[in-house]
């Protein structure tokens, strides 16, 4: 008899737990305005990434198209994947001395793990992390970028290497 009562009780208890579960899902069904879906391409205008979000490495340029990279190569050393290559060139300064300055700061986005070590290590604060995350391209070679803009020069107050 005792086991029979337990049997009946177990049926009702089981049904009750099922109903509690249905209550939870039902609550969300009938409150559709609480939906959490974000419709991505539509909300592109409103979508603001956090300021520290690491989307890609960029080089900061001011309004005179000047950057502060002196081509010291510390970022290249600090990069764990070899996604930064620095190509420098020699020029003659006004007073006739030979000087090495940066020619191209090449950045392979496809190899980058966005670990922030290059930005952290840069002594002159030339690099930063950009917020752009839409990196899809049709051709892999487009992921290799030159960070210093064309015709840009090194800012005056930057310490020489």
């Amino acid at each position: 008899m005792k086991s029979f009562i337990e049997y009946i009780v177990s049926i009702f208890k089981g049904l009750w737990t099922l109903l509690i579960g249905m209550k939870v899902t039902g609550k969300y069904f009938f409150t559709p305005w609480k939906n959490v879906t974000q419709q991505y391409p539509e909300n592109r205008e409103k979508l603001v990434m956090f300021e520290r979000f690491r989307g890609e490495v960029i080089m900061l340029h001011n309004e005179n198209n000047e950057h502060s990279c002196n081509g010291c190569g510390i970022c290249e050393i600090n990069c764990p994947n070899g996604s930064i290559e620095i190509i420098s060139k020699s020029i003659l300064t006004a007073d006739g001395k030979k000087k090495r300055i940066i020619d191209q700061h090449i950045y392979h986005l496809g190899m980058c793990t966005l670990c922030n070590l290059c930005v952290k290590a840069c002594p002159s604060g030339a690099l930063a992390m950009g917020q752009n995350f839409e990196h899809a391209v049709w051709d892999r070679s487009l992921l290799t970028k030159v960070l210093n803009q064309e015709g840009s020069t090194i800012a005056e107050n930057v310490k020489e290497e």
Partner: peptide, 24 residues
């Protein structure tokens, strides 16, 4: 995580000797 560390999953926030940034 994203606000403080800059990434959501592969955060890379710790460094030997501290953390990469101060908290947001």
């Amino acid at each position: 995580f994203e606000e403080t560390c800059g990434a959501r999953l592969t955060v890379n926030y710790n460094l030997p000797g501290g953390v990469m940034f101060d908290i947001h």
